[in-house]
Design a protein around this nucleic acid. Structure first.
Length: 603
RNA sequence: GCCGGGAUAGUUCAAUGGUAGAACGUCUUGCUCGUAACAAGAAGGUUGGGGGUUCGAUUCCCCCUCCCGGCUCCA
């Protein structure tokens, strides 16, 4: 975001707060930062509000803008500031933090508390005034409201948000707005949102009969319909073939395991409340497996004795279950289970880690190259935050962490991969490289992950004998190239607006006999195509040809093969390709060669 | 879980303090069709569930369930 736009959005946040105080003078103000597409401001209202307040606030903000108000910054002492913000408890809390720590940033404050960082001494704070409204603010504003185009912003929604993101603190009401420099940009943004409403994977999933969710099964527990299962199956076997080519061995592990396993692996300590318990009538306590790692580690112990057995690359389309709060499930993206992971654990010596990590990236690029439709991804280097509120999460010694992070950085440098750092995003056992994309709403999601584990081998006592007959712990790479298959279907649907590539289409095409007389010919074609393994159906119902074509369009079916008198006589088919339209009569061989080229999974 | 908004036919949506209507879909019948909607007819609703106010509630109020947008979390 450029500075000008940032200043514009930040200034709008001030105007929003100012407008809120005009409607509810007793409202308490939280903070009002900018976002990727606009801004928000958190309030504790003294009156009951609903969505109708948005248009009222917009009107007031527009009036303020038209008054050509100046944004005036000023430095004041803490004493003065406290007087100004009397009656605004959240602002006073921020002032206290500024005085004590020189910052309001939660993570930084934790650092200072842990004495990892020195507090900045500041004697004065900046405040910004616009007409009669004053806000505590480090700055970054336009000079005058006349720089704002009143038609290029919009208040979009009301939501709850905890003060400072802490669920133990009061919940404030957050008002979101979007803002741009021009009205055209705003219109484009709103249009994009409309598209997202229409083409998000839940809507497409229902329309194209990919999956369903039943309240009787439960929230976050989607059922794949026949078409969804076909897509999943294609992806699973495609990945298996690729992975076997890269030297992986597939295994299979049960959905339950005894509590002892997770005690030993260390997961129980951190994630007990995020695992489903299963109680055996005989008194044993199981958990539905929330990850495949410990199971694979046991297989390692069975198979590996010496350095000569390394690397061991175990893979599994393992199905896991994770506790999600009821309000947090989302279509196929965020589920309780089954999450069918494209999971693998690579056990390697320290010396070979770089090599193995690099091979995982080769596989990743090969796969996403084949997939074509998932573009615009970037990589995040997820590092620990040894000073933040979760610092106790990260185990092992610092030097190993640094060593592992260095290896990721080095490989990425050699492969010309740009890294965006993500401090505090690491796993408890090591740093990771995450591949990120934006979903259709523009929200960031992790689609693939490659993680280095420097901790669990020691904890689970995984060993091998090196060439000096000495016991060593291996390093583990945990990796998921497609993440979870179910979620990946969601990403695919959104990335393609439902028009999946031919090889991933559950129904690749339909055959339309014009009259009943042509059904026999259609059946012959169908059997032929099926013998090649392609997925076709005959649609011979009472509907007119145009109607059947319309239905095929609605279902986003890639190929339509039409046969009437002409085609039967010439032993041809009329081909219609989605988005290309009628291509006229084609020889059967041409259609089969088209399918051979694009209708099979890339190998 | 928390904050806000919702729930009307299978679907998308309309209407109303006096007991509900359209389109598409479904079914039946007729039509044998050449590249994005063949015609006619019929069925289909305890207006999410429960309670309250009222002569009367689908409409107003309360509780519950579920859905949506956020917050939080995501090994």
């Amino acid at each position: 975001m450029n500075k000008k736009l940032e200043n514009l959005r930040h200034s709008l946040a001030h105007l929003l707060a100012s407008a809120v105080l005009k409607i509810d003078p007793k409202a308490k103000l939280g903070i009002g930062p900018t976002t990727d597409d606009g801004f928000y401001y958190d309030f504790l209202f003294s009156i009951k509000i609903d969505e109708t307040i948005l248009s009222k606030l917009e009107e007031i903000m527009k009036d303020l803008i038209k008054k050509n108000l100046k944004f005036v910054g000023k430095k004041v002492s803490f004493q003065e500031a406290k007087k100004i913000f009397k009656g605004q408890p959240f602002k006073l809390e921020l002032l206290d933090d500024l005085k004590k720590y020189g910052t309001t940033d939660f993570n930084e404050i934790q650092l200072i508390k842990a004495k990892k960082k020195k507090a900045k001494k500041i004697s004065k704070v900046t405040i910004y005034q616009t007409a009669d409204f004053i806000d505590l603010c480090r700055g970054g504003h336009i000079k005058n409201t006349k720089e704002i185009n009143p038609e290029a912003f919009k208040l979009t929604r009301i939501a709850g948000a905890y003060w400072r993101g802490d669920e133990k603190r009061p919940m404030l009401t957050r008002i979101y707005g979007v803002a741009f420099e021009t009205q055209k940009e705003l219109d484009e943004y709103l249009q994009k949102q409309e598209m997202a409403e229409k083409y998000n994977h839940r809507v497409l999933g229902e329309k194209l009969k990919i999956f369903m969710i039943s309240p009787l099964v439960g929230k976050g527990l989607p059922l794949l319909l026949p078409k969804g299962e076909i897509i999943k199956n294609i992806l699973v076997s495609y990945m298996r073939k690729k992975e076997e080519k890269f030297g992986y061995q597939y295994v299979s592990s049960p959905h339950l395991a005894l509590d002892k396993l997770y005690e030993k692996s260390g997961h129980l300590k951190f994630y007990e409340n995020e695992m489903y318990k299963v109680l055996d009538p005989q008194g044993e306590r199981f958990f539905l497996k929330p990850m495949n790692c410990p199971h694979h580690h046991l297989i390692y112990q069975e198979l590996v004795k010496s350095y000569k057995d390394l690397p061991l690359r175990l893979a599994e389309a393992g199905q896991v279950y994770r506790v999600e709060k009821s309000g947090e499930t989302y279509g196929l993206m965020r589920v309780r289970g089954p999450i069918t992971q494209n999971d693998s654990h690579i056990y390697t010596s320290k010396d070979n880690l770089e090599d193995e990590f690099s091979r995982v990236l080769d596989l990743l690029f090969e796969v996403y190259n084949d997939l074509e439709v998932i573009k615009n991804y970037w990589f995040r280097l997820s590092l620990p935050d040894f000073s933040g509120k979760n610092k106790s999460k990260y185990g092992g010694d610092l030097k190993l962490w640094q060593w592992a992070s260095r290896i990721i950085k080095k490989i990425c440098l050699s492969k010309k991969i740009n890294l965006v750092p993500g401090v505090g995003e690491a796993a408890f056992y090591g740093p990771k490289l995450d591949m990120q994309i934006k979903n259709i709403y523009g929200k960031e999601e992790t689609v693939a992950t490659i993680q280095i584990d420097i901790l669990v081998p020691k904890r689970m006592n995984l060993v091998y004998l090196d060439n000096k007959n000495k016991n060593q712990h291996p390093i583990i790479i945990h990796r998921a190239i497609l993440g979870s298959y179910e979620r990946f279907i969601g990403f695919l649907l959104e990335a393609t607006f439902g028009d999946l590539p031919l090889w991933l289409s559950p129904l690749q095409g339909i055959i339309l006999p014009i009259k009943k007389d042509h059904l026999n010919y259609a059946l012959k074609i169908l059997n032929l195509l099926k013998s090649y393994g392609f997925r076709f159906e005959i649609w011979m119902n009472e509907e007119s040809l145009s109607k059947r074509i319309l239905l095929a369009e609605e279902q986003k079916i890639p190929l339509v093969l039409i046969c009437g008198d002409k085609e039967v006589k010439n032993k041809t088919l009329s081909l219609r390709i989605r988005k290309k339209g009628d291509l006229g009569e084609k020889k059967l061989e041409d259609i089969i060669s088209l399918l051979n080229e694009k209708g099979n999974p890339p190998s």
